[in-house]
Simulated scan of single mutants.
Amino acid sequence: MKTFLFVLEAVLGLIVVVSILMQKSKADALSGLIQGSKSETFFTKNKSKTKEAMLVKVTIVSMLLFAINTIVLNII
Score class of each variant (00 low, 15 high):
residue 45 K to A: 07
residue 23 Q to E: 05
residue 30 L to Q: 05
residue 50 T to R: 11
residue 62 S to M: 15
residue 39 S to R: 11
residue 29 A to T: 08
residue 70 T to D: 00
residue 70 T to N: 05
residue 66 F to S: 14
residue 17 V to R: 03
residue 72 V to F: 03
residue 25 S to V: 09
residue 44 T to C: 05
residue 45 K to P: 06
residue 8 L to W: 09
residue 67 A to V: 12
residue 32 G to N: 14
residue 61 V to A: 15
residue 72 V to P: 00
residue 33 L to D: 09
residue 58 V to R: 00
residue 67 A to W: 07
residue 3 T to V: 07
residue 3 T to G: 08
residue 73 L to W: 01
residue 33 L to W: 01
residue 76 I to H: 00
residue 33 L to Y: 11
residue 71 I to S: 14
residue 25 S to C: 09
residue 8 L to H: 08
residue 75 I to R: 04
residue 56 V to E: 11
residue 31 S to Y: 10
residue 38 K to D: 04
residue 37 S to A: 04
residue 66 F to W: 12
residue 20 I to P: 01
residue 40 E to R: 12
residue 67 A to S: 13
residue 5 L to F: 12
residue 55 L to E: 14
residue 39 S to L: 08
residue 54 M to W: 15
residue 48 S to H: 07
residue 4 F to V: 01
residue 69 N to L: 04
residue 24 K to N: 08
residue 24 K to I: 13
residue 41 T to F: 03
residue 10 A to V: 12
residue 60 I to S: 10
residue 40 E to G: 00
residue 75 I to H: 00
residue 37 S to Y: 06
residue 63 M to P: 07
residue 13 G to P: 09
residue 51 K to F: 12
residue 10 A to G: 14
residue 23 Q to N: 03
residue 34 I to L: 12
residue 72 V to M: 05
residue 67 A to T: 08
residue 63 M to N: 10
residue 16 V to M: 12
residue 22 M to N: 04
residue 39 S to M: 02
residue 12 L to V: 04
residue 16 V to A: 00
residue 70 T to C: 09
residue 64 L to D: 07
residue 14 L to W: 01
residue 22 M to Q: 04
residue 64 L to Y: 13
residue 40 E to Q: 13
residue 60 I to A: 13
residue 62 S to N: 10
residue 21 L to G: 06
residue 17 V to A: 08
residue 19 S to D: 05
residue 23 Q to H: 04
residue 41 T to V: 00
residue 29 A to R: 04
residue 23 Q to F: 09
residue 39 S to E: 07
residue 66 F to Y: 03
residue 70 T to R: 06
residue 42 F to K: 01
residue 54 M to D: 09
residue 52 E to R: 02
residue 75 I to D: 06
residue 65 L to R: 08
residue 20 I to N: 09
residue 32 G to P: 05
residue 50 T to S: 15
residue 10 A to I: 14
residue 16 V to P: 03
residue 71 I to Y: 11
residue 2 K to H: 02
residue 23 Q to P: 13
residue 33 L to V: 01
residue 70 T to A: 13
residue 13 G to I: 03
residue 5 L to I: 11
residue 34 I to H: 00
residue 62 S to R: 13
residue 20 I to S: 09
residue 10 A to R: 05
residue 50 T to D: 14
residue 38 K to E: 02
residue 70 T to H: 00
residue 76 I to M: 04
residue 4 F to I: 08
residue 6 F to A: 07
residue 59 T to H: 10
residue 48 S to K: 08
residue 3 T to A: 15
residue 1 M to W: 02
residue 10 A to N: 03
residue 43 F to E: 04
residue 26 K to S: 11
residue 43 F to L: 10
residue 21 L to W: 15
residue 58 V to T: 07
residue 35 Q to L: 07
residue 9 E to Q: 11
residue 32 G to S: 06
residue 28 D to P: 09
residue 47 K to S: 14
residue 55 L to F: 14
residue 30 L to S: 10
residue 76 I to G: 00
residue 5 L to E: 00
residue 6 F to T: 09
residue 59 T to I: 02
residue 23 Q to A: 11
residue 23 Q to G: 06
residue 62 S to I: 10
